[in-house]
């Protein structure tokens, strides 16, 4: 597959609800109350329970993996949290190819995660993949 700079990364989406957050918190042993306790989250200045950073990372990773294809690999993934995402919010990660290194085959993807009604940037990130 030929890849070029500026090529779109097809969007992937996920809507983690309160049950998702409880399951994700349980399996990662994350008991931080901002993820499940509405009253506590509000006392911290949030509108309600918020999505874990690692769950944002998983969506970034999924977008990169889908772009790399079944035989591809994700070598690196990174993300910076820009705005909290509330439980039940639809999250969409999309992006573009930022760089292609023909010598190594490494492809860098510039990624962004939108939440809210698609108007809030929850995370910005980057991934490096090897294509299938």
């Amino acid at each position: 597959m030929r890849v070029h700079t500026g090529q779109p990364v097809p969007p992937v989406e996920f809507t983690p609800d309160a049950v998702t957050l409880l399951r994700f918190g349980a399996v990662t042993r994350n008991a931080h109350r901002i993820h499940y306790d509405t009253g506590f989250a509000r006392s911290e200045g949030l509108e309600g329970p918020v999505v874990m950073a690692q769950l944002h990372g998983c969506l970034m990773h999924r977008a990169a993996m889908a772009f790399a294809g079944p035989g591809g690999r994700v070598l690196e993934v990174e993300w910076q949290n820009r705005a909290p995402a509330l439980a039940g919010e639809r999250l969409v990660v999309s992006g573009t190819v930022g760089a292609v290194d023909p010598a190594t085959g490494r492809v860098t993807l510039d990624l962004v995660e939108h939440g809210g009604r698609g108007d809030v940037v929850c995370c910005r990130g980057r991934a490096v993949v090897l294509m299938e």
Partner: peptide, 28 residues
Amino acid sequence: PDGMYRDEVPGTDGLDVRLMAGGQEVRF
């Protein structure tokens, strides 16, 4: 009391501070 582990964020044990994740860079 906020449910985080006391040793997760250095320097914050026993303090009434608000903790949030800022992001990660992962290299496999």
